[in-house]
Structure formats: C-alpha cells, structure tokens
Design a protein around this nucleic acid. Structure first.
Lengths: 116, 116
DNA sequence: GGCAAAAGAAACGCTTGCGTAACGATCGCC
DNA sequence: GGCGATCGTTACGCAAGCGTTTCTTTTGCC
C-alpha cells in the first residue's frame, strides 16, 4: 500500500514535522544519526558498524561516532558479539524505541493536519 | 486533504527518505537548517532573522549561522531591507528551489515504494 | 604456530555549530 | 537632535562532527 503524495504535501509534511521537531527536541540529531537510528529500529538485526557504514555509504568512524553520541543519549546500545569478538552488535533500547514512537506520532499528527 | 499514515508508514517513509538523502547529498544539512530552508520556501515572504528565530524557537545567531552556511551553498540569499535598514530580508534562490524540488521528488518516490 | 585480513576504535588536525554576551547600525519618538 | 529600543552580526570559548590514518583485537587459514 503505497503512500501517494503531491509535491505540496510531501514538502509540507517535511516542513511541519521538521519544524515541530526543532521546537520540541533539544537533542537535534543530525541527518546521518537519524538515518542510523531508523535503520537500527526498522530493519531486522543484527546490525554492525561495518554493515551500517555500507548501508549509509559512509566510513566506519562516522558510524562509531554516531553510536558514541546516541549511546550517550541512551538511544542505542553496543554489545560485543561473542561468536566473533571482532564484531559489535548494535542493540535497541527502550528509550530509543520510545523516541521513535514519539517521532512517528509527530509525523502522523502533522500528516493529518496537512490542508492544501 | 489530510494524509493518513500508519506508524509503520510514517517511520518507514522517514527512514527511506533520510537514508537516500544521506547517500545522495554531500551537503548534509542539519535539522535546523532544513527547517529554516523549508520555512523560507514554503511560507510567504518576507522572512527576517528575527521572525525565523521566533518561529523555530531558537536564538538569532543560530539563524545567522544557518544563513551563512546555506548562503555559501547558494540555497538562500540575504538582502538588506531598504525600508528599514535594520532588517535583512531572506530571499529564495533558483538553486534552493531546485534543491527542494528534488527533495520533494525523493519523498514522493519513497512514499510510492512503501510496501507494508 | 604464524600471519595476513577484518572489525571496530582511537588519534589527529580541521571545520562547523552551539549559547551567551557584547557590538554597531538604524529606527521611532519625544 | 538626542536617546532608548530593535535588528542582525560578531566575538568567545567550547563541544561535536568530519576524513584520513593508525592501532588493537580477533579471526581464518595454511
């Protein structure tokens, strides 16, 4: 079931959601951090640094840094993979799930408000 | 005409758009910069630093810096208001309009691809 | 057991953004 | 004409992100 949007609706939705998010959230995640967070929570695990780097098309340190930051915010967690101790498996957290749930509600609510 | 989205659709849309934007765009605007850009292009002018700061709920230097950056990228332009020379009027640019047009297309296309 | 390959992190120098505070230019108004 | 208020910018010290390179740990394989 695709979502059909007009150009006005598409940008209008992004506009209102972005605006509201800036107003409400002190954390101000970057676009990359948001992409990583959504990837972790919407795509079935396991997630590794290397895998995320490949998916996003960025270098590994970018992922490491983003995980540092979002880990400090409690949005994700890192656990060493015991079966291959070179790997780190990125874990979801309750707080991260709540964060995205709230964000999803924001999108839905702003979508409903779209007039044009 | 509101846009009705399920939670999966809302976050899924954000996920795919964000991901694609990270992969494609080297500019990597922050959330605040994006909010400012959309505000400038979607809301009727005139736009001032003070007005944008109030709308976003941030301080004026935040707007000044964002305009510096986006100005250097050619996405916006600044012109002194001749009727009240304290004011600066923020102007749209062709490049900025193109940027958002492309971004809108991205949203629409990713919306169409949504499956669940 | 030895060694190249792989994964993630850390180090480096740099750029950009932040919040607060101070500043210069311009206005309105008495 | 003077003067407080307003607008946008700049300065400051700091935190966070960047790309590249290097390092450490661990693996797989001969």
């Amino acid at each position: 079931m695709p979502v059909e949007l007009t150009p006005s609706q598409a940008l209008g939705l992004w506009h209102s959601v972005t605006l509201e998010q800036v107003r409400v959230d002190r954390r101000d995640l970057t676009l990359r951090q948001m992409a990583i967070l959504l990837q972790i929570y919407l795509v079935p695990p396991p997630h590794t640094v290397r895998g995320l780097a490949a998916t996003l098309g960025v270098t590994k340190p970018v992922i490491t840094r983003a995980l540092d930051t979002m880990g400090a915010l409690g949005l994700v967690d890192r656990v060493r993979d015991e079966r291959d101790r070179r790997n780190v498996v990125i874990k979801r957290t309750v707080e991260g799930a709540l964060y995205l749930e709230k964000f999803g509600d924001l999108i839905i609510n702003q979508g409903r408000k779209l007039s044009l």
